[in-house]
Simulated scan of single mutants.
Amino acid sequence: MGQESLQAFQHQVGDVLLRHRSFLDVSSKYQESNGRVNRAITKAVTECGCLRIEAGCQPFEEAIALSEMKNRFDTHLTGHLCDHCLDTVKEELGKNLFYMTALCNLLDIKVEEVIEKESKKLSTLGIFNLR
């Protein structure tokens, strides 16, 4: 998504958010949307079964170079989201993005600046960001 698209989306969010313009409303809706994203992914595991979680201890060996560690850690996910679950997760992520953008609007922050700042930090720190 280009800079113009981000600006257009942020403007669009500002135009359509009418009833719940209070910071408290937007903040609580953003938090709720985070939960709904997690719930949609959980349902893909527990109800549909298209995803499976197979978790265990992540081995950490100090002798390995940091650049190689990424290949040693597992996501703990197997399978792929089916079309239905994929649509649901995308929908919930979209709502989450909407409310994050609404928070940016209320706080007079440009979404593109948030993304640019995070990208610069990741570029500068690279693997040493360790998230």
Results as ranks from 00 to 15, higher is better:
Glu32Tyr: 09
Glu92Phe: 00
Ala8Asn: 04
Ile127Thr: 03
Val37Pro: 09
Glu112Cys: 04
Val89His: 00
Tyr99Trp: 13
Gln58Asp: 01
Ala63Thr: 10
Phe9Asn: 06
Asn34Arg: 14
Gly2Ser: 02
Thr88Val: 15
Asn96Thr: 11
Ile64His: 12
Ile41Ser: 00
Leu24Ala: 12
Val13Arg: 03
Cys85Val: 02
Cys104Arg: 03
Asn34Ile: 14
Thr88Phe: 06
Leu66Cys: 10
Leu106Gln: 04
Ser33Ile: 01
Ala44Ser: 01
Glu91Ile: 08
Pro59Ala: 08
Leu125Lys: 13
Ser67His: 12
Ser119Trp: 00
Asp83Pro: 06
Gly14Arg: 03
Thr46Cys: 03
Met69Pro: 02
Gln7His: 12
Val45Thr: 00
Phe128Met: 13
Asn96Gly: 07
Met100Pro: 07
Lys117Glu: 15
Gln7Ala: 10
Gln3Asp: 13
His80Ile: 04
Glu61Asn: 10
Ser33Glu: 05
Leu51Trp: 02
Val37Tyr: 01
Arg21Pro: 04
Thr78Arg: 01
Leu122Asn: 10
Phe23Tyr: 06
Lys120Tyr: 10
Met100Gln: 12
Glu118Tyr: 13
Cys104Phe: 13
Glu112Lys: 08
Asn71Glu: 09
Asn105Lys: 11
Ser33Val: 08
Arg36Asp: 13
His20Asn: 14
Ile127Asn: 04
Ser123Pro: 10
Asn71Ser: 07
Lys29Thr: 01
Glu116Pro: 03
Lys110Ala: 13
Arg39Gln: 01
Ser22Cys: 06
Cys48Phe: 00
Tyr99Val: 04
Cys104Ile: 05
Lys110Arg: 15
Glu62Thr: 12
Asn129Asp: 14
Glu61Asp: 15
Ile41Gln: 05
Ala65Ile: 11
Ile41Gly: 00
Leu51Ala: 01
His80Lys: 06
Met1Cys: 13
Glu116Trp: 12
Gln58Pro: 02
Arg36Val: 01
Ser22Ala: 15
Ile109Gly: 06
Ala65Val: 13
Glu61Pro: 07
Lys121Met: 10
Asn38Tyr: 06
Leu18Trp: 14
Ser28Arg: 14
Glu68Val: 09
Phe23Trp: 09
Lys117Ile: 15
Arg52Tyr: 04
Ile127Gln: 06
Leu106Ile: 12
Glu61Ile: 11
Phe128Asp: 12
Met69Leu: 09
Arg19Phe: 12
Asn129Glu: 14
Ile41His: 00
Ala65Cys: 08
Phe73Gln: 05
Val16Met: 13
Leu86Gly: 07
Phe9Val: 11
Glu54Asn: 09
Leu24Lys: 14
Val16Leu: 10
